[in-house]
């Protein structure tokens, strides 16, 4: 039984369908990549899964219950966390307050303090800057903060929307190391990326999305080897 199981999902902005009936499964403990060109509908899909957008049709099942149309502030309590595209850190809150908001749904103070130390251990830069407002951080530091903040909720399913966007290569590498270590802790991850090579190297399986539909789905090595993917997304 999949942890996340999506059937016939359609999402529309006004009259315009951005996601046109997709099926998608993520098993517990898996790292699955969702790749596709700009405008394919990846962000829209993640927003619908996280409860930020209400689907126009289809069903979303998570951990054996129907979560179609459930609002984001309820889904997070069931363990679904989204690191949004563009990071979405609270620029006027301090780094520490951002992380506190990540743990908003929890009230086990000692465990929260432990998790805070864990995030600071993973990202020493954030510890140095914990009293600074997040707006003063670099893009890479903000991405670390966004991921750290999501981890503060102790998610079971982590949805990552283009964590490498706009970052220098060294920082991209660091972010992917972190994604690997989160996956190694047993957190299930659905990773959206435009950097198809990195995403498929990290993932065990992948989906390819084009204009609102899923056109390919296979194991990551098979996708990496497929001429279609190599031509369209790996620049060959």
């Amino acid at each position: 039984m999949s942890l996340l199981s999506v059937r016939g999902l359609k999402v529309a902005y006004g009259g315009i369908e951005a996601v046109r009936g997709i099926d998608l499964d993520v098993e517990a403990g898996e790292l699955v990549a969702l790749i596709g060109a700009n405008g394919a509908g990846k962000t829209t899909t993640l927003k619908a899964l996280a409860g930020m957008l209400r689907p126009a049709a289809g069903t979303v099942r998570y951990a054996d219950s129907d979560i179609t149309g459930v609002a984001s502030h309820r889904l997070i309590r069931q363990g679904v966390a989204l690191v949004p595209e563009g990071r979405g850190v609270f620029a006027r809150l301090t780094v520490q307050e951002n992380l506190q908001m990540g743990a908003y749904i929890r009230d086990d103070r000692p465990a929260i303090a432990q998790d805070l130390d864990k995030v600071f251990g993973l990202f020493p830069r954030l510890h140095e800057r914990r009293a600074q407002v997040a707006g003063t951080l670099s893009g890479g530091e903000q991405q670390m903060l966004a991921i750290g903040r999501a981890m503060m909720s102790r998610p079971k399913l982590l949805l990552l929307d283009e964590p490498s966007m706009g970052l220098a290569p060294l920082m991209v590498q660091k972010i992917f190391e972190v994604v690997h270590s989160i996956a190694a802790q047993g957190v299930t991850i659905l990773l959206v990326e435009q950097n198809a090579l990195l995403a498929l190297e990290a993932a065990s399986r992948g989906y390819v999305m084009e204009s609102g539909a899923i056109t390919l789905s296979d194991s990551a090595p098979a996708l990496l080897a497929s001429p279609q993917v190599r031509q369209a997304y790996l620049g060959e």
Partner: peptide
């Protein structure tokens, strides 16, 4: 207070505040 930080977070970005579990 936690409510106060949640108020400031909501004022800055209600959608992301919702992702944190804040009932805006």
């Amino acid at each position: 207070t936690k409510l106060g930080v949640a108020m400031r977070a909501t004022s800055e970005n209600p959608q992301v505040a919702g992702l944190m579990g804040i009932d805006i």
